[in-house]
Design a protein around this nucleic acid. Structure first.
Lengths: 230, 230, 230, 230
DNA sequence: AATGAATGAGGTTTCATTCAT
DNA sequence: AATGAATGAAACCTCATTCAT
């Protein structure tokens, strides 16, 4: 092998070229639909209309491909998160509502990736340390952001003090994820079969927004006493 | 019992023999840990200490094995669900709290199966009609049970009338699923590394119970007005 | 294993009990339809409504089963052949025609077995010495019988002297086999689709009889001169 | 050429590359010797000195391999058939003799393939629609060609009018097939053990030619009256 | 830079057979 | 005498990856 030229694309490794991004996009869709193991490199290369060997060529391996996918998408999120919450001058409830809207939008927008994230979280033997680390950071970032908002509200005396932010965040993400993954059940129950895919999605998003805002309001508002004895 | 004509047991009746149940149990654990596709029949047979061909022998195929798994566990759930909620003479809130406890117990008890269920729900191209149908029934049963309880509370004037039961159920299951799938993150954040597996789990369950009961109380209680305008 | 009782059925090996004959009958049908290798013991046991292990139990192996099949059917033929041709007082042509009728009847009657015989003959690496030997004897018997009849006709000056009996026999059996194996093509060409299976078969048999008798007459009759120069 | 999307060559066009043709050649020999089912992909790949997975790679499956085999060989025949019979200016008998020679040559030349064809015809549940169709076309082509020749002879008053062309064709192919499949018996009977394989074959071919030409002459010649009463 | 032919490991499944009962 | 649970080998096929070009 001619050594001077055999520096495979994937060793450059921080910037991805258009072809790589295209492959990542296709892989994202398929991994979301069928799962990582059930998706073959042939599936991907077929849908992306590229040669089978391109995945290995560009990423080194299938494993590395999903790592690249996580790297790219994680970066997206990190950037978007901070922007949303720090600049504006808003009341705590407005801020919470904005956060809820932001997260719903973000997740529904990148539904495929979130689907993959959920799958990865389910895996006991984490796919790979790289992904585990990225996921951990992602989740920690989310948690810190929410903590900031809520602590601010608490300092202002608007929010209760006994708020379990982790569980609240768990409810927020859990509800959205659950809603998305049972979309078809949702359609049946609400009788939305005649609506288009998009109409149905925006319908569900709207309902979700209202539901989660009400929920957060209930959990954060001071007047509620905590007498919950089963 | 696999007969001489190779008609596996489950096509005759719905009884599985001890060996089959053992295989199902092993498969359940592995499918939960790695996913269906990533789990090979060899993995299963190795852990179950049986011959590779026994899976095909007892179930016909890997596909049929997971179907059997769903059939067995679904049956468990159906039976347990009704019992819990119909007989006792309780207040609406007591009933709701009992339901929450019941569902938390049920899911944490059959964590592996629930993990698999979540994975299946994520799959766009449902593994197989058999499983889709069972899942649909399961979810419908859950929803109906919750509707019964809440409607009763509404008739008694204890609960608000504008409750979206489907979304509430989504939050309930979504929160529990999310909590379980991010268990290790939970451990890090709460600094529970020194606790044993079981101690940690019961700690989390306890927190979950309180959180969800508070949450339901907030969403169902009448005094809360619904002014949530972002 | 208790030695005194473990003399498996198949070692007795000259007489077959009803169960064995039933298995042989089913195997015959399936081997004819799909070939030996393509027919599994499970296929056989399913159709015969017996346990899978019965084939090994009664015959020792699948291989031995087909040997048994050949033994049983070969015996049938040997007995039937001689009877037909030696006793009656007939003209040579009458005798030839009787032979043709007899062979057509015999083959169509035991079509499955003949199908298997043809398959075996095609196999370069003869299934097993046992079968090769039986087949050889069978063919030799057929040839001798035909030689007897023809030599007698020659002695009487009714038949030509330059008859190649082997090739004539080849034509006789080859034509019948070919006709049977292209039965469905025959049906299409003659437009017999509306006839029942049996009607069609008797139609074909009748045509075959006439054709072959005419053919033999042509080949055996003296007046034809042999000037065949391409 | 198997493209990156794993669409094997033959689905794009009907050209097979040298490697594929080599595999087909090996498969042809083994299928002829042992039958389709009894021949494993391992057998083929071993004899062809290629990797086991190449068969699936080049043809998709074992099933598709035999289909490819039939496609290639069928094409051969179709082209050769017409050429032979249309151009020359010959007497009807010359033409028939030429046809007989041609068919004998063709079959002995492609003996393996013909062996496989005979096996396929014997299968009640035709291997696959593709093969059934090709076989049907092949047989129909043969029949039409023979009909043309014979009808011409009839128009010229040289051949009898009551000729059953289908049965005559059955006899022609049946005799050749039978002769080839009982080659070893033929050797024993004629005492040709000391001859080489090729010498023996040409000996048999010569005998076959004479036999079949005489036979056709007898069946087609007008003077023979049809008094065949058993 | 990119291809596609080729590989070998490993996947699921089917097979004939055995063995304890 | 007969069963059926269980086995291990081998079947076909798919997989991710490599390598020469």
């Amino acid at each position: 092998m001619p050594a001077h030229t055999f520096v495979p694309a994937y060793t450059i490794n921080m910037e991805y070229n258009p072809k790589q991004l295209q492959i990542i996009a296709v892989a994202e869709r398929l991994f979301a639909a069928k799962g990582f193991s059930a998706t073959s490199i042939r599936d991907i290369s077929q849908e992306a209309d590229i040669n089978v060997s391109m995945v290995s060529y560009y990423f080194g391996s299938k494993e590395k491909l999903i790592e690249a996918l996580f790297e790219v998408r994680s970066r997206d999120f990190r950037t978007r998160l901070d922007v949303l919450l720090t600049d504006l001058d808003l009341s705590p409830f407005q801020r919470v509502n904005l956060m809820i809207d932001g997260i719903i939008d973000r997740i529904t927008e990148k539904q495929c990736f979130h689907n993959i994230v959920v799958r990865e979280q389910l895996s006991t033997d984490g796919r790979t340390p790289v992904i585990s680390k990225l996921l951990q950071e992602l989740k920690l970032g989310n948690l810190k952001a929410m903590e900031n908002i809520i602590h601010e509200g608490q300092k202002l005396g608007v929010f209760r003090n006994d708020v379990d932010v982790l569980l609240l965040s768990t409810t927020l993400f859990g509800t959205i994820n659950q809603a998305l993954s049972t979309k078809s059940f949702y359609r049946v129950v609400y009788g939305l079969e005649q609506l288009s895919e998009e109409e149905q999605e925006s319908h569900m998003k709207e309902k979700l927004r209202i539901h989660l805002k009400k929920l957060f309001r209930g959990m954060l508002t001071t007047e509620l006493n905590d007498a919950v004895s089963s």
